[in-house]
Design a protein around this nucleic acid. Structure first.
Lengths: 259, 259
DNA sequence: GGACACATAATTGTATCCAATCGGTCGTCG
DNA sequence: CGACGACCGATTGGATACAATTATGTGTCC
């Protein structure tokens, strides 16, 4: 029996004390929030594949009602991050070998094309943005911030995709990216299989040199390397049952969207 | 892949009379059901882009509670078929020119590759299945069943994608397909822009001949033709407000699929 | 000791209720 | 006569209550 309430969950005035009181919408306690936090927890290796997600527990952790949790879970399921079986609740998905291979195959197809386009059309500003990102990645690496690094290396691919100008493909790739993250979690053998250090840099070099061929080839090799780092035969291992995996967030980057 | 359960319109009596009545789960009255029926209504041109979808109305039509309707709408929104603005409810999406172009771009990228793979690997059984499908398409065309034809031409692409063996890409393509359908609805100038009659057949020919290059080229041309048939400058026109578009049994005969 | 049957607890699924919000209407005032 | 503002109806957003279902534990019988 976890110490459910223990988490100083909501920083802002949660105050759900009085049922008759402002029972209306609480800003910030939305389904996207649940989604983001679970995604982040996955990326941070705090939530392992296979973990059971009980609605009420999640609600307690996040300080929201089951209604909201449910919406979040639905989104997560749609994104393929969570598996939702009829009367048995949700658990973090465990991408099997086939699915993992398929995702990488799909990414290869899409990203090779996108990076070539970027290499063809990228503005100096774009290149600068990528270089800046690389520096951030390096900083995280130096600092030994593995969690941050995982997130950042993922974002690199997303930024690249966004530069290609096709919103739909970028969105699809974002989905794939998260599943990739999950697959890495489920199948990494070293516990360390983030993207190899310099490959992103080489790709940016090729982009700056306006060499689509090279950029495409590098991207392909890069993805192949990441895939090669996985052990697809790994059997599902038991997951810690939610525990305090989500509760005490260290200084949260917390995206404050809208404005 | 809509598993249309051929919903017999609920006997309008929504029975919210007594709370003690069979308030439990009614098989077949699920969120997927709502999703499928709306998708089908879109494909059947019964629901035009821009149509406002009022939760309670939908619920009445489908004989389900708002809870279920909302789940369905959430899925539709996730799939990009419905736009969900914060306090203003849902309406059928109206893909603008950019979005439409992006979808076609994405489809080109993916389908060219997939069709080439199929042309490389297709078994005789696969080819037979495609030929069979072509016959069904032809039958619908001969019979003047435009609604059925729209659905079938879409399914052709889906079946092809499934044969390529990558489940993820097939799923992504399925999403794109539905959005394509929406775009066609929103921007067609003739009211008749289904896939040109013989192009599917040529593609199958190329597959049977095991000529990936040709298959890819034909697919590209095919998609370009469909896109060319659209008038992307078309301004949003007002949509009939849901009307009896979905309701029990208005004008539309047929439907009643399954058995 | 093991398997089955039943009671019980935990959890999910759905309906319903109430507050919040939006859009429009009407009335008042400048 | 037009503009602004307060009401009102319609509709969405969210929490909760309760039914349904699955999971778990216990006792009995073989």
């Amino acid at each position: 029996m976890p110490n459910s309430k223990a988490i100083a969950a909501r920083p802002a005035g949660t105050r759900r004390k009085k049922a008759t009181a402002p029972r209306g919408r609480r800003a910030g306690a939305t389904a996207e929030n649940v989604f983001d936090r679970v995604v982040e927890a996955i990326q941070s290796h705090r939530l392992a594949p296979g973990t059971r997600l009980v609605e009420e527990k999640l609600g307690a952790y996040f300080g929201v009602s089951r209604t909201i949790v449910r919406q979040g879970l639905a989104k997560l399921a749609q994104a393929g991050l969570v598996e939702l079986s009829p009367n048995q609740g949700a658990r973090i998905a465990w991408p099997d070998a086939k699915r993992t291979a398929d995702v990488f195959d799909a990414r290869r197809l899409i990203e090779i094309e996108l990076v070539a386009r970027v290499a063809t059309n990228a503005s100096p500003a774009d290149v600068a943005k990528l270089r800046m990102h690389l520096r951030t990645e390096d900083a995280a690496r130096k600092r030994g911030d593995r969690v941050g690094l995982v997130r950042l290396t993922g974002e690199f691919h997303l930024k690249l995709a966004a530069m290609a100008g096709n919103g739909i493909l970028a969105r699809t790739l974002a989905e794939y990216e998260t599943v990739t993250c999950l697959a890495i979690l489920a199948h990494d053998r070293t516990g360390e299989s983030a993207c190899p250090p310099d490959e992103h840099a080489s790709i940016v070099d090729a982009i700056e040199a306006r060499d689509p061929r090279a950029a495409a080839a590098l991207m392909r090799r890069h993805l192949d390397h990441v895939l090669a780092g996985l052990d697809l035969d790994a059997a599902p291992r038991d997951a810690d049952p939610l525990e305090a995996a989500l509760s005490p967030r260290p200084a949260a980057p917390r995206r404050r969207r809208g404005h």
